[in-house]
Amino acid sequence: MKVLVVGAGAREHALTWKALQSPLTDAVYCAPGNAATAAIAVNTGLQATDVDGIARFNAERDIGLTVIGPEAAVDAGLADRLAQSGRLVFGPTKAAGRIESSKAFAKSLMARAEVATPAYRVFEDPTTAKDFVRGERRPFVVKADGLAKGKGTLVPRDAEETLECIDTLMLRKTVGAAADRIVLEEKIDGREVSLMALVDGERVVALPPACDYKRALDDDKG
């Protein structure tokens, strides 16, 4: 089987490395890949969001499995396009990917499904958002609604820093249009644990829990 790994990060290198260990794998291609994947597989130069190009490559090379890494590729509808062509693909549809591509949608979905989640408010106007924070007089986690390559969540220490974070995302546009809408989320202190699972619509396979230590230095002082 020929495998195509979509993405250009360390995650995609790990996926490529693991795919090569399978006895079912004949060759692994990466779109676009990176220097590390070039050493063990074939980089195609195709961008992760080039849906048409990746679909053509699948057909031309008779790719048996496409593994999608980046959220942007999911949001571009890559899985939908490949599935419509009868190709085997590992990755969520664009609709399912809204849980990741829109923080506001994810929070509303959790609220409707009665999944425990910190309280939140959604804002499209920075002035209104800051007025809300001033009225509450406490810090909130500030999240860009859209995809921001891991740079869209800011964790302030107090209300004043929360106001600065709102300006950073909505006025200074540090993550662009991803922060045209933001989510202000109740700040909860403690250790963050991520628990992810693989699902196919019928089965759920849980992966080991993991901690993501985002801030530098001890005691989150970075």
Score class of each variant (00 low, 15 high):
Gly97Glu: 02
Pro139Asn: 04
Leu184Asn: 09
Ala55Tyr: 10
Val89His: 01
Arg191Cys: 06
Lys187Glu: 03
Ala216Glu: 07
Lys130His: 02
Ala216Gln: 08
Ala206Ile: 13
Leu82Pro: 10
Arg81Tyr: 10
Asn58Leu: 01
Val67Gly: 01
Val141Glu: 08
Gly45Val: 04
Phe140His: 05
Ala104Cys: 04
Glu164Trp: 11
Glu114Arg: 15
Glu202Trp: 12
Val142Asn: 07
Leu109Thr: 13
Glu192Thr: 00
Lys187Ser: 10
Lys151Tyr: 04
Ile68Met: 03
Met1Leu: 15
Asn58Met: 07
Ala38Asn: 08
Thr93Cys: 02
Ala95Val: 06
Ala216Lys: 13
Asp52Trp: 02
Gly201Asp: 13
Ala144Asp: 05
Gly176Phe: 13
Asp167Gly: 04
Glu161His: 09
Gly45Ser: 05
Lys103Cys: 02
Val74His: 05
Arg138Gln: 15
Gly201Lys: 08
Val183Cys: 08
Gly190Cys: 12
Glu114Gly: 07
Ala38Thr: 04
Thr66His: 02
Val5Thr: 01
Asp131Glu: 15
Trp17Pro: 02
Glu185Phe: 12
Thr49Asn: 03
Cys30Leu: 14
Ala38Tyr: 05
Ser22Cys: 07
Ala95Ile: 13
Pro208Cys: 08
Ser101Lys: 06
Ile99Pro: 00
Val6Arg: 04
Glu114Val: 13
Asp189Ser: 15
Thr16Trp: 09
Leu65Ala: 01
Gly176Leu: 14
Arg191His: 13
Ala206Lys: 13
Gly77Tyr: 10
Ile166Val: 14
Arg203Pro: 12
Thr37Gly: 11
Arg56Glu: 11
Cys30Asp: 09
Ala48Gln: 07
Val89Cys: 11
Ala76Arg: 04
Gly190Asp: 02
Pro208Val: 06
Lys103Gly: 03
Leu154Glu: 07
Val183Asp: 01
Asp167Ile: 08
Val204Asn: 07
Lys2Val: 11
Ser22Phe: 08
Gly77Met: 06
Val5Lys: 00
Ala206Tyr: 10
Asp180Pro: 09
Ala55Leu: 07
Glu60Ser: 10
Ala178Gly: 13
Ile99Tyr: 12
Val155Leu: 14
Asp200Lys: 03
Leu4Arg: 07
Leu184Cys: 10
Asp50Ala: 12
Asp80Arg: 11
Met1Trp: 08
Lys173Pro: 08
Leu195Cys: 15
Ser22Asp: 06
Asp218Glu: 14
Ala159Gln: 03
Ser108Asp: 12
Ala106Asp: 03
Asp158Lys: 01
Ala159Thr: 00
Ala59Pro: 02
Lys149Phe: 15
Arg137Thr: 12
Asp26Val: 10
Asn34Ala: 10
Leu88Glu: 14
Leu4Lys: 09
Arg134Ile: 07
Lys94Gly: 01
Phe140Ala: 03
Tyr213Met: 14
Ala48Tyr: 06
Gln21Ser: 14
Ala197Trp: 07
Lys173Trp: 14
Ser108Val: 11
Ser22Ala: 06
Glu160Tyr: 01
Val142Gln: 09
Ile40His: 07
Arg112Gln: 14
Gln47Cys: 05
Ala148Glu: 02
Lys143Cys: 09
Pro118Asn: 00
Arg11Asn: 08
Tyr213Arg: 12
Ala10His: 03
Gly91Gln: 00
Leu46Gln: 00
Val183Leu: 15
Phe105Met: 04
Leu46Gly: 03
Asp131Trp: 06
Val3Gln: 05
Phe140Met: 04
Arg181Cys: 13
Leu15Lys: 04
Ala129Trp: 06
Ala76Trp: 00
Arg137Pro: 00
Asp52Met: 10
Glu124Val: 11
Gln47Ala: 11
Gln84Trp: 10
Arg98Met: 15
Arg134Trp: 05
Lys94Ser: 13
